[in-house]
Amino acid sequence: MARKYYHDDPKWSDVAPLPQEDYGHHPLAAIAYTEEYSEAMGYLRACMAANEHSERVLELTEHIIGLNPAHYTVWLYRAQTLSALNSDLRAEIAWLNPTALQHLKNYQIWHHRQTIIDKLGSPDGEPAFITAMLDQDSKNYHVWSYRQWLVKRFDMFDGRELKWTEGMIDDDVRNNSAWNHRWFLVFGGTVGEGEKVERDVVVRELEYAQDAIRKAPQNQSPWNYLRGVIRRSGLPLSALQHFALEFADPENRPDDDVFSSHALDLLADIYAAAGKTELAVKALDLLATRYDPIRKTYWEYRKGLLEAEGRKEETGAASAAAVETAAA
């Protein structure tokens, strides 16, 4: 992009730029600005100080955003200018599209976009733009957060959105952002917090996650989803025992016959809840030593909890026996 200066631009001849103060001889984190940026910022300060909201301010803010998209007040100032000028907001979105693609990791841009789309009152074109963004980075946090806002703002909790999300998961079954979006659609929309989820929805979600696990048993996203559904619907974890045994069975199958560490993890919890401490310990041992040794200390900790629990019960039983003996 060609450099742009203001000091010899007749359009700006009436403005005296405000140079940056840097407070004495010991500035902290001083940056070697380019001349272009320094000058543009001087004109921005002058405009802000005069509360000027004009077409040329839109150009100036556009220029500065190109050089420093994380400048938080420049976005707020631009939004205020658009509103003061009653500008065409569709044109603003048309400008934002390539700008967002240039600055994938920037947050402010999404906040600004949200403000504009909210005022426009229509999500037209937004899903297509989001798809273009996700083509660049399918796990971009800001984009998924923005998509949630869009769904809520325009009540898009319908089958189409769920279908689109399934497409994203089909593209990459390990895309945890897509899994999370599914959770949001199913449990964050029409179903209220703490409200009972319909049985057929629970069955559908369990089956969906289980199918995905069968495709890629070591992918943690659907395992987390599965546990989430069980907890949300109030079912006991043991409802998953049969499924988990497809991938590991410390009780009946040899130790090298394991297809997913997450199945062992789940079984450890199921066994522990059923009081089958020995089997739970075995599952945790397999994790610590063979199937997930990078979390060795974590699995050991879980084992420690089970053993402490066991001791407590023993002491409890012993003292109960003592009480009985004393009473007798």
Binding site: A29, A30, I31, A32, Y33, Y37, N68, H71, Y72
Partner: peptide
Amino acid sequence: TFLPHHYTGNDSMRMTLAFFIL
């Protein structure tokens, strides 16, 4: 010394950079 110009994107959070450095 001056931070190189690619820190321009952090211009509005110099206090944060200053804290990290000190």
